[in-house]
């Protein structure tokens, strides 16, 4: 569709620009100002140049948190995308089952993020949780399951929670993609006597490419920013084993009130996210063009 060329359209965009700029630009400028100063108290600050950046870039705990973050986001994609596709394939195509499945799937997405953490505390505690008690009563594990004591178990619990929470989103998107495939394709496949596997590989998967790209990018971005759920569940522990970037940042900036280092950290984090956002946007646009053309 050819669009009208008219710069007056800016008047329609202006309100959005103002409201988002108010929430985005002023805080960003503030962060930049903080990042080059040592702030002792209200109105008392000393210019320190790039010292905080240097300190943060050499910070071992930040490196660890960043590595942990990449590992976590990578695992999230590896598990959630295939699982989500499987679920979408198994979902009913018509009848009352459709809206029932949609409602059940959407349920975890509508729970406040810290309540997700609470649910999983209650569910996995070794003394009162169904999962914790259940797995320990099997006596399969050498070390009894307790996500507050063993880093590995903490990781498993956070992963389980994340997969439980967000796989439905992938499934919903994949389902939307499947629904958009015209029935004629399936009929053609049936006439050719294609196996279900071939139907999946040559028809369904290519047709889902667009929504799956969106799913991959959304899950990558959002898992990169994860905060509330692991914060409530493990508080970043035991030790620092589940301290992801956001958790560490909030620890520095809000809890220890180290404004300077926190701001420098924020900016480094923001630049990394900005790079990903750019790649995200480019890929999305390409997918969009591929579908239209």
């Amino acid at each position: 569709m050819d669009k009208w060329q008219d710069n007056k359209a800016w008047f329609l965009v202006l309100p959005v620009f103002v409201i988002v700029a108010f929430s985005a630009l002023i805080p960003l400028m503030t962060v930049v100002n903080y990042s080059v100063q040592d702030i002792f108290g209200p109105g008392e600050a000393v210019f320190v140049g790039t010292e905080w950046f240097k300190e943060m870039l050499a910070n071992k705990r930040l490196h660890d948190a960043l590595l942990r973050q990449f590992l976590f986001s990578g695992l999230v994609l590896l598990i959630e995308i295939p699982l989500g596709i499987l679920i979408a394939l198994a979902m009913p195509k018509k009848g009352w089952g459709v809206s029932t499945s949609l409602v059940i799937l959407a349920l975890p997405l509508l729970i406040p993020w810290n309540v997700i953490g609470t649910i999983w505390i209650i569910f996995t505690r070794p003394d009162i949780g169904l999962f914790g008690v259940g797995i320990n009563s099997l006596h399969l594990l050498e070390v009894p399951f307790d996500h507050t004591a063993t880093p590995l178990y903490a990781w498993i619990t956070v992963m389980l929670m994340e997969v439980w929470h967000w796989t439905p989103l992938v499934a919903l998107l994949a389902y939307a993609g499947l629904r958009a495939i015209p029935e004629a394709y399936y009929q053609a496949a049936r006439i050719d006597g294609a196996s279900p596997w071939a139907t999946f590989w040559y028809i369904q998967l290519p047709k889902m490419r667009g929504v799956l790209t969106i799913a991959v990018l959304l899950r990558w971005m959002d898992s990169f920013l994860i905060y509330a759920e692991p914060f409530v569940l493990t508080g970043g522990g035991p030790g620092n084993s589940t301290t992801f970037l956001s958790i560490y940042l909030v620890k520095i900036a809000l809890l220890q009130f180290d404004l300077g280092p926190g701001a420098a950290f924020s900016l480094i984090y923001f630049l990394i996210v900005l790079l990903f956002s750019f790649i995200f946007y480019q890929v999305l646009q390409r997918v969009g063009k591929g579908e239209k053309g």
Partner: peptide, 12 residues
């Protein structure tokens, strides 16, 4: 907002 000369120069 704790403006300093370098950050002001940067934004300008």
């Amino acid at each position: 907002m704790y403006w300093t000369l370098p950050t002001a120069t940067f934004f300008i």
